[in-house]
Amino acid sequence: MKKKPIIVLFLLTVFLSLSAPFLQTAHPGRKNIQITLQEKRISELSSAGLTISFISQITNLTEKDYSLVSYQYQVTIAGKEYFKQQVSLEQPIDIPAEKAVTINFPVKISYQYLNPWLVEGQKQASCQVSGEIFFWDEKKKTEKLSFSYLMDFPIFKLPELTFLPLAVKNLTLGGADFFFRFQVKNVNPYDLLIQKVALELRLGDRLIYNGDVAGDKMLEAGQSRIFTLPLILDFFEQGRELRDLLEQEAVPFSLRISFQADSAWGWLSFGVDRQGSVSKEFSR
C-alpha cells in the first residue's frame, strides 16, 4: 500500500480582544472580514522534518458576529501539488463584532516523503499554502476569504561522523590512558552553533563514557571539526575484557551523539551514531 505523505495542516485558534472597538463602520463594497499574515516561522526542525507555521489574524470589521465554519486548502512543495483537503468544523469558531482572532496554519513536513518533489542535492525548497475560509453571519449567509502564503525551508542533512585513530599514551596490564577522537562535518550550507554535545561511547559492547563534550563546538557551513575525548580505564575494576579489546589491531567502538544547536533556520535537535574499528597510534 502506498503511504501518504505525512503533512498535517490544522487550525489552532487563540482569541485576542482588541484594545478598543473599531471606530469605522463597514461601507458598501468593503470586505466585512479580512485576513492578515502576522508571522511565519519554522519550528521542530530535525533530521526527520520540520513544522512551518503561518500565523494570521482574522478581523471582523462589522458590528455583527461571524463564525468560521469551514476551510479548504492545498499545499505545494517547489511548485508541485503535495496535499489538499477540505475541512468542516463541528464546532464553528466565533468572531465577535469588531474583534479579531489569531489563526495558526501549521504544516508538518517529513523529509522522507519529499524526494519526488525535489532534485538531487537540493538544499532548500518552498512551501505554499493557499485556500479559502468560509464564514457565516448571524443569518447564516456565507462569506469567504482567500489566502496564499509562501515560505522557504531547509533540507537538513545529518553531519558526517568519522572515527580517527586512537592516540594511546599508555596501555599496560592494569589500565589504559588514551584519547578517542572523531570528526564531525557539517554538510549543510549554513552554520550550526552547537550548544550541547552528549556522547555515549562503547568499547565493544561495554559503555565506557556517558557525558557531554566541552569546548568550542561551532560548525560553519561545510566545515569539519575534530573532537577529542580523554579516557582512562582501570582493567582491574572494569575487567580484562576491555584490555583484550584495546590490544586488537583494529579496536571496535560504537558512538552515539546527541546534538542541540542553533542555526539561521532555528533551533535543531538531532542525533548521529556510528560503529567501526579504529587503529592505534602510540605517543608519549
Rank of each mutant, 00 (worst) to 15 (best):
S279N: 12
I232P: 02
D191I: 04
R206P: 04
P230H: 08
S224G: 03
V69W: 01
S277A: 15
G266E: 10
L16P: 02
V69T: 12
L18C: 15
K108W: 06
E281V: 12
V168S: 10
K3V: 15
Y73R: 01
P116D: 09
R240M: 13
T76F: 09
S277L: 14
F235H: 00
V272F: 06
D152R: 10
Q124H: 08
L45G: 04
A48C: 12
D234L: 07
Q195I: 04
L193V: 02
E247S: 09
V197Y: 00
L193I: 10
L192T: 06
R240V: 12
N170M: 15
P252G: 12
L242F: 00
G222W: 08
R30P: 10
L268M: 08
W136L: 11
D152K: 09
K64H: 13
L207M: 00
K40H: 06
P252E: 10
Q72S: 06
R240W: 12
L201Y: 04
L193P: 05
G222F: 09
F135A: 10
D94Y: 06
K64R: 15
T36P: 05
V69C: 04
N104E: 02
D273Y: 11
L68F: 06
S224L: 00
A198T: 08
Y66R: 05
Q195T: 05
P106A: 04
S224K: 06
L12A: 13
W117L: 07
N210H: 12
L255M: 07
A214G: 11
L246R: 02
K3R: 15
I232K: 08
D212P: 04
S283Q: 14
A261H: 05
Y111W: 03
T59P: 05
E132I: 01
N104F: 01
G239R: 00
L199P: 01
D244C: 04
M151Q: 13
L23T: 13
N188V: 05
T172Q: 07
I232L: 05
S110M: 03
L219V: 02
S130G: 08
S263P: 14
L219F: 01
L246F: 09
F178T: 02
V119I: 13
Y113G: 01
R284C: 10
Y113V: 12
T25C: 13
I7H: 03
E249P: 05
Y66F: 13
L16Q: 14
F15M: 08
T36Y: 15
I194A: 07
L173H: 14
D94S: 07
I42H: 13
F270H: 08
V272P: 03
